[in-house]
Each structure stands twice: as C-alpha cells, then as structure tokens.
C-alpha cells in the first residue's frame, strides 16, 4: 500500500495540532490518502490531554517566562512537554487493513513503526500497553489516539533528549516539597535517544529512521508529499477557532 509522507519540520504547537486534525478530517472525507507526518515543535509547547484541566496541569506564568506555548489536544492522555523530540502522526481510515478494530491492538500495530524506527537507530525497545514504548525499562515514546468519522488519528512523541527539570517547572506539581523527588523519579522512568546512544542524534536522522521504521513495520510504501491547499486552509481555521482559542484550551 502507498501512503503519503509529510515532513513539515518544526512549527508551533497550534500549527502542529491544526495540521494533524485537518489531515484527519480530509482522510475521513476520502479526499486525502492515508498519511504519516513527522514533525517537531518550535517554540516548545506543553500539550494537555482532551480531558485534563489546563490550569490544574500547567503553570501558565512559567510558560510565558520560558516562551513555551500551551494547548489542549483532541486526543486523551496526559500533559506532554514537547521540545527535543520527533512527533509522528498517522491518519488512516478505520477500515484500512492495517488497523485492527480493537483500539488497544491498533496502538500496538502503529507503535510497531516506532519500534522498528528505533531499531534503525540501534535501539532495542518494546511496546507496553496502553500507549508506551520503553527502552531498558524506561519510557522513550508515548502516543494518543482518537477516532472520528471512521478515521484513526494517532500521534505521539519520540524523545531525542529530555530536560526533566524544565518540564516540571512548566507542569504543576502536587507539592513543591516533593518536586525534587518527583524529578529524580521521572529521570529514573524516562529516557531518550541521546541518553541511550550516548551521543547527540540529529532531528533529521530520527525522522529518516522513523519513516523507514513505519515502511518496514506496516509494510507500506511512503511517498513524500505536501499538504494540499485545502488541508492548509482548514488547518488555519482550526488553529484560530480551536487551538488558539482560550475557550477550547480552558474548557476543563
């Protein structure tokens, strides 16, 4: 099967989420082909899950100080600090042979692409339900999925590097007293490509490896394409009406 590959480089969080949703809608309407997109975040951003309370999870003043955007995703799951990572998204009809009906199974199938991509970089990893990929017991990737209009959108992060202290300055922690303990706990539980390989790996190299990983794992042929003008137009509307809209971001 052929699948479109979009390499959109680094964009701000509003644009990134607007593009993902726009692609999903166009795939759902049968206008756009199944698509895998690989991208980064600039400036860095905190995204929260669909059901999370914004001010409960994110220190908005600190975000302003550290020039970090914040926004609510259309997918569930937890708060994520996006900085040194490659994010993937896949939009594909539910009916596609690649996608098991069972949501749990479909996470596993799609995450297979990440595992194969990490292998390409010399990292051996495994899937842990519901939505994590771990290396030597530590999390290196997390994903979230939604299904609308008989279309699956799954997006997730692959960490190139981590800054746990910075992450916790942006997220609300239950108590300042426990903050140091929390930081050391998370350092024990989270890893990154750079940390595993003990060298600095370039964004482009991770992108290339993940593209290969998806091709091999899903047995598809990726063909590099571009966002269509309609996809861009809808993305702009979603950025304005949803992702930059305080009503959306503060709704819980």
């Amino acid at each position: 099967m052929r699948c479109r590959l979009l390499l959109t480089g680094h964009n701000d969080g509003f644009t990134n989420m607007g593009i993902d949703e726009s692609i999903m809608i166009h795939v759902g309407q049968g206008i756009s082909p199944p698509t895998i997109r690989l991208y980064g975040w600039l400036p860095p951003a905190v995204s929260i899950g669909y059901f999370q309370g914004l001010e409960e999870e994110v220190d908005l003043d600190m975000c302003k100080n550290l020039e970090t955007d914040y926004l609510r995703r259309i997918t569930g799951g937890g708060a994520v600090f996006h900085e040194k990572e490659v994010t993937y998204s896949i939009s594909i009809p539910e009916a596609d042979r690649l996608i098991p009906d069972n949501v749990l199974e479909s996470y596993k199938v799609i995450c297979g692409g990440i595992i194969e991509g990490l292998k390409e970089l010399g990292i051996s990893s495994k899937f842990v339900p519901l939505n994590d990929i771990i290396v030597e017991g530590k999390k290196i990737s997390g994903s979230a999925q939604t299904r609308r209009n008989r279309t699956v959108l799954q997006h997730g992060t692959v960490l190139i590097d981590t800054d746990v202290a910075k992450m916790f300055s942006l997220l609300i922690v239950p108590s300042e007293k426990l903050k140091d303990k929390l930081i050391s706990d998370v350092k024990e539980r989270v890893t990154s490509i750079n940390s595993v390989l003990r060298r600095e790996v370039a964004f482009e190299d991770v992108v290339f490896a993940l593209a290969k990983g998806f091709e091999r794992s899903l047995d598809i042929e990726l063909e590099e394409g571009k966002l269509t003008s309609n996809e861009m137009k809808l993305a702009q509307e979603l950025i304005r009406d949803r992702y930059k809209n305080p009503e959306w971001n503060h709704r819980r």
């Binding site: 899950g49 059901f51 999370q52 309370g53 409960e56 569930g76 799951g77 708060a79 609308r148 819980r252």
Partner: peptide
C-alpha cells in the same frame, strides 16, 4: 478531568 481515554 484526568489523563484517561474515552472514545468518543
């Protein structure tokens, strides 16, 4: 609120 998943 929380970091769970519910579809839809």
């Amino acid at each position: 609120r929380g970091d769970f998943f519910i579809h839809p």
